[in-house]
């Protein structure tokens, strides 16, 4: 199984690397959104606004990134994938790949965002917690949205349904994430803020477990 997961991740990575337009489009999407925010706000001094806007931009980019994870595969290739690997390996592989992709994207866009919209709010930041928030956010978004993407890929209206199905599921996590990251940026100590991190981790693990159990039913045609 580990072998299968590894193979799927490396296949996705290689595919992504060869079709550079796909990877590029996600990054361009983030950069463009940040630039739009910059045009609108110039500089944001207020920490809650700064933080919330960042996660909203990341959220929509994550939707875009995750939506592709199943729809990029043609139905023939999907079937072929199935004869090669167990569905559990497919979903775990896709989830880990999405988490990795979002991790790179989140850190890159955080740097770009801070550069464009001002580093003022970050003065007191608790950097360890901020890094943890970005990591947990990327992993949580990647994990949760992968199963939603698998669901949406089975319908005709992939992108529209992705948002409809994904938003209510992701909202609880997003609310915790925004609070955790705001506290981290405000420089609140780990002892006060750690509970949110554990909640995020718990939601990610639950999402992983549920996807592992439920995904095989999605493949059965």
């Amino acid at each position: 199984m580990l072998q299968e997961i590894k193979a799927i991740i490396s296949k996705d990575l290689r595919m992504e690397w060869r079709q550079k337009h796909a990877l590029g489009s996600i990054f361009l999407y983030v950069i463009a959104s940040i630039f739009v925010a910059y045009m609108g706000f110039k500089q944001i001094v207020d920490v809650p606004t700064w933080n919330a806007l960042f996660w909203i931009i990341v959220l929509f980019a994550a939707f875009n990134a995750a939506a592709r994870s199943f729809s990029v595969e043609s139905s023939g290739r999907r079937l072929y994938l199935f004869t090669l690997a167990r569905p559990e390996s497919v979903i775990i592989g896709k989830m880990l790949y999405n988490a990795f992709l979002l991790l790179v994207m989140v850190f890159a866009s955080f740097a770009a965002y801070a550069l464009m919209l001002g580093t003022g709010p970050l003065e007191n930041a608790n950097w360890g917690s901020v890094a943890l928030a970005l990591t947990l956010g990327a992993v949580g978004l990647g994990f949760t949205l992968t199963l939603v993407s698998a669901l949406a890929a089975q319908t005709d209206n992939n992108l529209g349904l992705m948002a409809v199905l994904g938003l209510p599921v992701i909202l609880p996590m997003l609310l915790i994430l925004i609070r955790f990251s705001k506290n981290a940026i405000d420089g609140i100590a780990w002892s006060q803020n750690g509970a949110y991190a554990w909640q995020l981790l718990a939601i990610s693990v639950m999402s992983l477990g549920l996807s592992y159990i439920l995904f095989p039913y999605l493949w059965r045609e």
């Binding site: 319908t155 199905l165 599921v169 939601i203 039913y217």
Partner: peptide, 24 residues
């Protein structure tokens, strides 16, 4: 297919909601 997709989403979303409504 609709039944299968609906069931998967129902279970997934319910669990996520319960965590939020009950625990948080």
């Amino acid at each position: 297919k609709a039944a299968r997709l609906g069931a998967v989403y129902n279970i997934f979303a319910f669990m996520m909601m319960i965590v939020f409504v009950m625990v948080l």
